[in-house]
Each structure stands twice: as C-alpha cells, then as structure tokens.
Design a protein around this nucleic acid. Structure first.
Lengths: 165, 165
DNA sequence: GCAGTTAAGTTCTTTGATAGAACTCTTATG
DNA sequence: CATAAGAGTTCTATCAAAGAACTTAACTGC
C-alpha cells in the first residue's frame, strides 16, 4: 500500500509530478527562487517538519533540481538549470491563483522584466504567430514516444478531443 | 497532526496548491482535458482507488474546477472555465517533463494550433515585446495584496533577489 | 415484474506518510 | 573551553492512501 508513484505512466505530466508533485515540494522550490538556500531557512519559512524537509531536499538533489554545495560553513541548496526551468510552470500556477483565488486587497506579486521593469506577458498558450489561444483552440498530437497502447492514448482518440491539454 | 494545508500562506502559488496540489488531482484534471467525464473513466484510466477519487472529485467541484452534471443516465464531471484556465500550467509542466524526463523514443505529445496544425509557441516567460526571458531576467514586485509582514516578503528583500519567481 | 448487469459511490482495514518534539552531531564564536 | 547555532536524525502519534468489499440506483432483457 505504498503511496502510488506516477512513474509508470508514459506521460510527461505524470513524470513531472513524480518529481515535484509531493506535498511541500513546489513550495520549497518557490522559496529557492526567492533566494532561500539553507535548511533552516526553508524550515522557518514554510513551517515544514524537519524530517520531511530532509527527505524532500534529498530527493530534489537526486533529481537534479537542487545542487547541494558547501556554503560558508554550512550546506547550501541551489537551483540547477533544470530547477530554474520550472519557472514557467510556477509562474503559470501563481497567475492562476492570482486570478481565481485572489487576495481581496489586490495582486500579491507582479513579475516584471528586470531590464525595463515592465510586466511580463501573461503566461499562456500562444500560437506560432503570437495569437493568444484559448483552451479549446489547441489539440494534442501523439509523437513517437506515445504508443497506442498507452492509457491516455487509448481512452480517447486524441484527434477528436475538444479542449484537450 | 493533520496534513498541513497551504491556505494560510498569502501566496498565490500556495493557494493554488491547496486546491490542485494533492496526490492525483492534477492527473484527474489532465484526464478531463483529454475528454474523460465519468467516475469509472477516471478510475480505470488512473488506477486511483475509488474512495480517493470520490473525495478528489468532490473537492474539485466545490472549488469550481469541475461541474457535476447529469449526463445520459449518469453523472458527468466537466471542466469549468476556471478548470480550463489551468491549461497553461499543465502544458508548462508537460513541457518540462518532456525536456528533462524524456521518453527515449521521442516526444510523447505535441500541442498544435487546431486552426493550422502548427505547434504552439513553447510555454515560457516572454517580455512585453515578445523576447523570451530566462529565469534570472525577471523579478517579482510586491503588489497591494502583499504586506511586508508576510513570510516570503520577510525572508528576502524581493528587489534584490536573483532569479526569483 | 424481476433477475442480471453496469456504474457510482461508500465503508472498512491495513499500511505508509506526515507532524511535532526531542535528540545527536558538527561547526562557528566569545 | 564553554556555549550556541545550524543541520540533520530518530521517535511516536495520527492522518491519508491502497485495495477490496459492499451498497445503492438505474438500465436491460425476458
């Protein structure tokens, strides 16, 4: 009765969730984006219990999302390039929360271009020519990595689905 | 010793994770994007246990992500607009998994514009003028919804952080 | 009308995962 | 050298998930 992992799904989302989908993990990564690097910094910022934090950090290092280095007299955990590449996903979720679970007093954060201070383009789905696409304006096409025997290729003929992601 | 919720964080990401961050939830939503609508469809597609699926669907309906309707003789769960708006986050995570946890036989899915069949622009962070921005080229600015007393405003002075998200 | 079937959801038990506190160990610091 | 601070580990109590069995309700022929 182990907690089910999602590794066995041939699905990029399930694979991703196997690595970053556990309780606390994405918040630890968020804190790392905000500059936290040390065990107790994460512990204090989140109120996560120490044993769980320990397990999570180990897993993230193994996964290549964090790099553990010797800081000035103490270890430090820093995002690798692989970890930094999670930024669009984090920003997309942040943006969704801002929109649908807002703070009544206004936006909590805005992301701006460091160069000119202007807000970034809202994270979304854009066509090659730059048009913003709505959920049902895209469809998924199976690539070489997806066999027809796979669960979610089987359940629904991909080409015929409305609003798939 | 209840499993900690993230509701108390004044953080859009934490709020989002309170709703979609539980085990299985995002895969249920993914399946809904692929056209699944019924209890047993989700159950069969994911192999999730029925009790957990039941709890998750209820929570998603309460959160306004799914809408429960009477289908032809049986209930159906469909994504609301709020649920459909999660698409960019899902696609961003899918894209990350495709890149960093790839299937050796090639891409599993490609997302294309329904209109012309061309692949969408890769999900990422873009400046107002369309330039693609790297993680450290943006910064977060506190808005009216974020007080200085808040945890992650406290931990790090936002303006001085490298590569924050 | 009723036996058989299918689907939706609930209940129950077992076991794994988390919360929280206490503890160990190593490294700075006066 | 004493003390403290930070980084983890260990321990116990409780909660949540896995898996199977059960209940309920609607459809399907006969």
């Amino acid at each position: 009765m182990k907690l089910t992992t999602f590794d066995h799904f041939n699905c990029s989302l399930a694979q991703t969730l196997s690595v970053i989908g556990e309780h606390w993990t994405l918040l630890i990564i968020r804190d790392a984006f905000f500059g936290l690097r040390r065990f107790d910094e994460f512990h204090n910022s989140l109120g996560i219990s120490r044993n769980v934090l320990s397990v999570r950090l180990k897993k993230l290092v193994t996964a290549g999302i964090f790099e553990k280095t010797d800081g000035p007299g103490h270890p430090e955990y820093r995002l690798t390039e692989k970890g930094l590449a999670l930024q669009p996903a984090l920003v997309a979720m942040t943006h969704w929360g801002d929109t649908y679970l807002p703070n009544p007093e206004g936006k909590r954060l805005t992301f701006v271009d460091r160069r000119d201070g202007k807000p970034i383009k809202p994270v979304g789905i854009y066509a090659a020519d730059g048009r913003r696409l709505k959920p049902k304006e895209i469809k998924a096409k199976a690539g070489p990595g997806l066999r027809n025997a796979e669960p979610y290729a089987r359940t629904v003929p991909l080409e015929e689905v409305e609003g798939n992601a």
